[in-house]
Simulated assay, not measured.
Amino acid sequence: MTEWLPELLVSVLASVLAITLHEAAHGYAALALGDPTARLAGRLSLNPLRHVDPVGTVLLPGVLLLGQLLTLGRVEFMFGWAKPVPVNLLNLRNPRLGMVLVAAAGPAMNFALALLAGLLVHPVEAIGPSLPPEVMQIGFRFLGLSILANLVLGLFNLLPIPPLDGGRIVTGLLPRALALPYARLERFGILIVLFGVFLLPRIAEGYDPVGWALRHVVARAFDLVLLLSGNGPGA
Rank of each mutant, 00 (worst) to 15 (best):
M1H: 07
M1G: 08
L9Q: 13
L13A: 15
A18H: 01
T20Q: 08
H26C: 14
A29Y: 04
L31Y: 10
L33W: 01
L33F: 09
L40T: 09
L46S: 06
P48K: 13
P48M: 14
L49N: 07
V52D: 03
V58R: 07
V58N: 05
G67N: 11
L72Y: 03
V75H: 00
V75A: 04
F79W: 08
V87W: 03
V87H: 01
L89C: 00
L90W: 07
N91C: 03
R93F: 04
R96V: 01
M99C: 03
A104D: 03
A104P: 06
A104E: 03
A104C: 06
F111V: 01
A117R: 00
L120A: 15
H122W: 12
V124W: 05
E125L: 15
E134G: 00
M136V: 10
M136C: 04
S146Q: 12
A149M: 12
N150R: 08
L151C: 10
G154A: 10
N157E: 12
N157K: 15
L159Y: 04
P160R: 10
P163I: 01
L164I: 08
G167F: 05
G167R: 02
R176E: 15
R176N: 06
L178A: 11
L178F: 13
A179W: 06
Y182P: 01
A183D: 11
L185W: 09
R187V: 14
R187E: 09
V193D: 01
V193K: 07
F195G: 07
V197Y: 04
L199R: 14
L199Y: 14
A204F: 02
E205K: 02
E205Q: 11
G211W: 08
V218N: 02
V218S: 00
